[in-house]
Design a protein around this nucleic acid. Structure first.
Lengths: 252, 252
DNA sequence: TAGTGGTCTAGACCACCAC
DNA sequence: TGGTGGTCTAGACCACTAC
């Protein structure tokens, strides 16, 4: 196999991460095997050791690789997480990655001032409107995610907000749309995680038994400037997807 | 106010983080204010700019600080999270941090081969025993966390396992105990997050209405060598605590 | 003792932003 | 244009582990 080497253009660290990841996933570096020492990789990739160290640091953070001081760097034995909760992506992609055909059904769409809690989270002034859409995401036709999105009119722009009211599929997938059509990239989101029963959900016409347990995530998306650009209530029945997370031990 | 400067001994980056954090929390750098440029901090602390950058990078990851390319670094406006789900600590400390008096009640303790799923997660051989303890954590006397811990006998050592069977409070708080008495530090844990109803819980004598919604976390703790050293089923009623998390947008 | 990862430096150059 | 953060380098020295 021809082993790639970084090309100038994107960040050298990112390229190095990609190459190492590819080697791990393809088995060039087998599970539990030791990686070549950093100075060797630096020589092979023709970059400095600092660059290699940053790249390996990224992999270590993701749990792909394990460093042992004075010994070496090893491919992790822990299998990769399925749905890492600390990483967010558009639901359609998430469903597709799970091997199912994604779909969306819009249950209700309106353009109005949102409820006070949501307005506060989005830093809206009284009277400012937002597009609120209740969606059901399906996997192979089965409903798997119930979601209430609220996006301020000033984020969408008035023409797009009006248009989306008639054609709600325009604003899906949300992250992509906000980036492409509004120039607003979601950098991170603040999530609150709880449990709920179907009967308590803020979702119209929920086709579930009233005491079905649901994972309930309420989150607000922010741009790199910390401007809130969307709010979301999300309900996940256990049957379809569970989330996983690597938690670090901390000392306070 | 006398501004501290790093001292050699601990990592320069860690010291720098601590000092910057202190300045932020004490208001030397007010909310939304701009930090001095990196080269200034480097000169002030008498370290290289790379060291300063690493330190600021740590703060940026924690959401304490916001970097703007070509502009500067600013103190974040987003308030600090209450219970960041990606950080784990002993429940007693978590409850105490919430301003309540922590307590633990042991409902059931046994030393036996665990159920197959748990044995597999802990890489136990058939017949190997583990200490399984069902605990209720209380805050000001109110039950707020239900937890089923399983720790292999070979991790505890036979004497301690036998002793803990009679005096279960010996193994609490778990992280501390494993570190102090067994020399096994929990480095990270792999968690699966779901919703559940009280009636489905693997917990004896749960004093809750059968359809109470609970956040259900199943996790396995690992040492730095990736050896699994404990397993845990945890149930959180919403009423007491909710978890929060910063999720990053990813591209795949 | 040899080899590994961990820390730190001094300096170069680039990309972005405001004026 | 000047100042900021973003990237990268070459090299030094330390700390840890295995033999």
């Amino acid at each position: 196999m021809a082993l790639r080497t970084p090309v100038r253009g994107a960040s050298l660290v990112e390229q190095t991460v990609a190459i190492l990841l590819e080697r791990i996933n393809s088995g060039v570096y087998a599970r539990a095997a030791q990686l070549p020492p950093e100075h060797m990789l630096a020589a092979e990739f023709n970059v400095s050791r600092a660059t290699i160290r940053s790249a390996i640091g990224v992999l270590a953070e993701r749990g792909m690789v394990l460093r042992r001081h004075g010994v070496g760097t090893f491919v992790s034995q822990i299998p990769r997480l399925a749905n890492p909760l600390n990483e967010a992506e558009d639901f359609s992609y998430m469903i597709a990655r799970g091997g199912c055909a994604p779909g969306v059904r819009f249950v209700q769409v309106e353009l109005a001032p949102p409820e006070p809690a949501v307005a506060a989270a989005l830093a809206l002034l009284p009277g400012q409107r937002a597009l609120r859409s209740c969606k059901v995401f399906t996997a192979d036709g089965e409903p798997v995610i119930f979601c209430v999105n609220t996006v301020p009119e000033h984020v969408l722009g008035e023409p797009l907000a009006a248009e989306a009211l008639r054609e709600p599929q325009l604003i899906e997938p949300l992250f992509d749309m906000l980036e492409r059509r509004c120039g607003r990239r979601t950098q991170h989101q603040l999530a609150k995680i709880r449990a709920a029963r179907a009967r308590e959900c803020r979702f119209p016409e929920l086709a579930l038994a009233p005491d079905t347990p649901l994972l309930f995530i309420e989150e607000v998306g922010f741009t790199a400037d910390e401007a809130p650009i969307w709010h979301s209530y999300e309900y996940f029945p256990n049957s379809f997807m569970t989330f996983e997370l690597v938690r670090e031990r901390v000392r306070r």
